[in-house]
Amino acid sequence: MPAVALSTLVPGETATIVAIHTEGPLHQRLLAMGFRAGKLIEVIRRARFSGPVQVRIGTTDILLRQNEAEKILVKKT
């Protein structure tokens, strides 16, 4: 399975994080929130009008916008 962007996943799908293509402050913040290569990530839901996506890593639920989700590469499981 090739790696795809997190933003392409639909609610209910799970995947493994492959790479995080962000830099600087956003990168630090994502790391601290638990985004790390190899971690399992689940898409819980999306908001209407192309709003943010809710994902779950371990026991933490995080909201992020489409823009940010595009920068996270995952492999579907």
């Binding site: 913040r29 929130m33 639920d61 995080i62 909201l63 992020l64 823009n67």
Partner: peptide, 11 residues
């Protein structure tokens, strides 16, 4: 602005 939006959703 193009501030990223990343926020925790607490229970």
């Amino acid at each position: 602005n193009n501030e990223p939006f990343v926020l925790e959703l607490p229970p």
